[in-house]
Design a protein around this nucleic acid. Structure first.
Lengths: 193, 193
DNA sequence: CCAAAAAGGGACCTTGAGGTCCACTCTGAA
DNA sequence: TTCAGAGTGGACCTCAAGGTCCCTTTTTGG
């Protein structure tokens, strides 16, 4: 509900009704609404990161990156882009409101970006990407394109800008691709292993 | 105040105090808070688009694009990325809250993107970019990178991700640059003028 | 089986935010 | 000079949202 309607627009009474519990239960577990919100963010983040981990765990090819893009876009297309990113929309509402929440969200973004970065590193190791490709920066660019795409898609109620943004980011990564050789790419680096 | 603290966190009493007027004045001009909010969005957007227009009006080179990037980044660096984009942060709070506001913001984004796109078209016309460059899509990519960069910078309280994102988008545009010839590039299209 | 403690329900309180209203002031035309 | 009407200030109202409290039910352990 907080993701869909916004945090401040979601009342404790609605939460109580939706969860089928009572006020005393809420306050047994959380000192106040802010604490509950932080836990909601944590839960949302864990679910998101878990899903992303499934998608990115074995990422080590450009095809895999495109499959990831398709999965993310398809997921967002279901709602015509409404609500935006499960983490990003909460981020933008909370960052200038609750410093503790901001730091937590920054960490979640960091681990998410780390998954992308790890995949890109594997692509470097297996010779798909050139050695001079900066995996960290490419991952940041990918994340920014994703988040920007989410926001634009959300306002236009159409996934198209998100697709364009992700294609741009992936195209940028492809610029670091090692040109295709005959046969298989080299099996890892032979030196410095 | 709405941009800094969020719309729902800004009360009419604070607005009244800050503007040095009274409640009756607010309600003389606006039927309710929502209407006032929409006008705030319009004002914010007009100011932003005016500034952007100054920066983008004569854009017709890659150097110009980089100057635009530097200006935007420098402006955001002043606050260490806090508050995000003047339009984007309002967008993400209002889009799933007020359909009328959402449509308005979508239009503002569209005109903004149009300014970028127009600059890219000029770059195509003057031979800086190849004819097969899709100005509209490149502009969308640029906007997404910008907005995503704003969001990431906002959560990390550091402009760095924004810089990386914009560099990525500009790098993507440079991929459509016509390789430098000796002397000046062709002066506009000779046909279809 | 019983008492103590934990879990639970929901009425109630308090605060503050949006919104209303009315008495007063200022301006301008007859 | 006066009176109509717009402009203005700010007290006040209403209601809903966060937060408290107390009584009841369930669980646990001796």
């Amino acid at each position: 509900m907080m993701y869909v309607k916004g945090v401040s627009a979601t009342t404790l009474d609605e939460i109580r009704a939706a969860s089928g519990t009572s006020k005393s239960q809420l306050y047994r577990h959380y000192p106040d609404k802010d604490a509950l919100v932080r836990d909601v963010v944590a839960l949302q983040a864990v679910e998101l990161l878990e899903r992303q981990h499934q998608l990115l765990r074995r990422l080590n090819s450009l095809r895999g990156l495109e499959r990831w893009r398709d999965a993310v876009i398809e997921h967002n297309a279901l709602r015509n882009g409404a609500y935006g990113c499960p983490l990003g929309s909460l981020a933008s509402e909370l960052t200038d409101q609750d410093e503790e929440a901001r730091k937590a969200i920054a960490r979640y973004f960091d681990t998410w970006e780390g998954m992308l970065s790890a995949g890109l590193v594997r692509m470097k190791d297996s010779g798909v990407l050139r050695a001079d490709a900066n995996a960290g920066e490419l991952a940041t660019g990918l994340m920014a394109a994703l988040q920007g795409g989410y926001l634009l898609a959300q306002t236009v109620r159409d996934v198209k800008p998100m697709r364009i943004a992700l294609d741009m980011a992936i195209g940028h990564i492809k610029a670091y691709a090692v040109p295709a050789e005959d046969g298989n790419p080299p099996e890892g680096g032979t030196r410095g292993h």
